[in-house]
Design a protein around this nucleic acid. Structure first.
Lengths: 118, 118
DNA sequence: GCTATATTTAACCACATAGTTATTTAACTT
DNA sequence: AAGTTAAATAACTATGTGGTTAAATATAGC
């Protein structure tokens, strides 16, 4: 089965090495050797990570002599942002509940705090 | 190695079945059977997906008689939102460039369109 | 054409993932 | 106690992932 784009993007982001590569690319394009330099890992391993990022549409690769400079392509990240945005009210709601709880702890003197079902 | 929380979250979200389960849980808590119903998949398979979601902190499981109602826990999704937000300027920049390009195509008569650095 | 540099590909290994069916555990019902 | 329902676990299979080392490819420079 060909995995959907969103799955491919989440999957690509589920690895700290790949996220670090993306972070590096926010500073500008870089060669494979430059990208590999910070990692205690062979070059082919990094090359594989780049292939995953490329297939997810998160990087593009140019050609300049024997170098293949990589550049960040943030399009799929917008998809992630849009997807997760659907859930915003749920985590804000959680914080609201925590907030309510803390307020209740502080205001012990008050009756009972708000109830959901009276 | 114990994978970091962000990796675990991205990894959990990289599967369309699990994302569908989370979507279902936005409507309220549900039993394992209820969650499994839409999928052409055995119950143990769904049970495994739930375990992945639970270990990523994306759901919590209660107890009510022989049912284990699942509820959405959106906390880790905020981490995703915060992480991806770092990259917003990059996808907006891409759209800006596309926008500039379209404007340039339309306004052929005008001098050169607005420059970033004057 | 030869050699050095940059990168990819091939072949392999260990382990994780996503699914299956069969069995087991837990709690309710009668 | 026996049976039913809900869910998890066990045991297994197939495939994917992340890493390795060694070999192949592509380009630049002499």
């Amino acid at each position: 089965m060909t995995p959907d784009r969103l799955s491919a993007t989440f999957s690509a982001l589920a690895d700290p090495t790949r996220r670090a590569i993306l972070a590096r690319l926010t500073l500008g394009e870089a060669s494979v050797n430059e990208l590999a330099e910070p990692f205690d890992m062979s070059l082919p391993a990094v090359s594989k990570h780049l292939k995953v990022l490329e297939r997810a549409g998160l990087i593009a690769r140019g050609r300049a002599a024997q170098w293949r400079p990589c550049t960040l392509q943030a399009g799929p990240l917008k998809d992630i942002a849009d997807w997760v945005e659907q859930y915003r009210r749920f985590w804000e709601q959680s914080f609201d509940r925590l907030d309510d709880y803390l307020k209740e702890l502080q205001g012990k003197g008050k009756k009972h705090g708000p109830k959901k079902q009276p």
